Computed example of a mutant assay.
Amino acid sequence: MFRAVMVAIEIAMLEPKTQLGGVHVILDMSGLSLVHIYQFSPQLAKLILDWVQECAPTRLKGIHVINQSFIFDVLYKMFKPFLGEKIKKCLFFHGDNRKTLTEKLSAQALTEYYGGTADIPEFPGSLFADMLFYYENEFQEFNTYGYQTQTDKEKPAH
């Protein structure tokens, strides 16, 4: 799941408007259960937040958490120690209050479900998978970026 989010952000960053304007992320926590919580360790929480705060190639404008329950509080307590000041400033908890969400984001950019007026059709998850496969060659190239380790041939002899 984490890799899929990373890839989706890489796809979004191919769009010049996203590069200039940045992004708002809506985390809809409806349906979050203890089974999901057990998938997160403190190490994974730190890995995710380090990536978001230090590596994600995007201008993060806001993280809007909606429909969170007491179960989310357990997960949030795991992430909270790793939050940097920048993330804390753009993190907003809305619960089921869509009015506070539309105060932060234009109603014209949100679907009716989120309290907005945008006429955006719902797409099946398979369409997202198709999009990921469409950009497969770009992902392979993206995975070559960063620090390279020396191969055995390049390592100095002792």
Rank of each mutant, 00 (worst) to 15 (best):
M1F: 08
F2S: 10
F2A: 10
R3Y: 04
R3Q: 14
V5D: 04
I9C: 07
E10P: 04
E15L: 13
P16L: 06
T18E: 03
Q19E: 07
L20S: 15
G21V: 04
H24E: 13
H24W: 13
V25F: 12
I26K: 15
S30C: 08
G31D: 00
G31T: 08
L32M: 10
L32C: 03
H36C: 03
H36K: 09
I37Y: 09
Y38W: 09
Q39C: 12
F40R: 00
F40L: 07
F40T: 01
S41R: 06
Q43Y: 15
Q43H: 15
A45I: 04
L47W: 10
I48V: 15
L49M: 14
V52H: 02
V52I: 15
Q53T: 13
Q53P: 13
E54Q: 15
C55R: 13
A56W: 00
K61M: 15
K61W: 06
K61N: 13
G62H: 07
G62F: 07
I63Q: 04
H64K: 13
S69Y: 07
S69N: 09
S69E: 08
F70S: 14
I71C: 05
I71D: 01
D73E: 12
V74M: 10
L75T: 05
K77D: 07
M78D: 01
P81H: 05
F82P: 00
L83Q: 08
K86W: 06
I87H: 00
I87T: 15
I87P: 00
K89V: 04
F92A: 01
F93S: 08
G95C: 14
D96C: 14
D96L: 13
D96K: 15
R98S: 14
K99P: 01
T100F: 06
K104D: 02
K104A: 11
K104F: 05
L105V: 14
S106Q: 03
S106P: 03
A107C: 06
Q108I: 09
A109L: 14
L110Y: 03
L110C: 03
T111D: 09
E112G: 03
Y114P: 03
Y114N: 11
G116Q: 03
G116Y: 04
T117H: 07
T117D: 02
D119R: 10
I120A: 11
I120L: 15
P121Y: 12
L127E: 13
F128P: 02
F128G: 04
A129R: 08
D130G: 10
L132S: 05
E136G: 06
E136K: 10
N137P: 05
N137F: 12
E138C: 06
F139N: 00
Q140K: 10
F142T: 04
F142K: 05
Y145I: 03
Y145T: 03
Y147I: 08
Q148H: 11
T149Q: 10
T151G: 10
K153F: 02
K153W: 02
E154D: 11
P156N: 05
H158Q: 05
H158P: 05
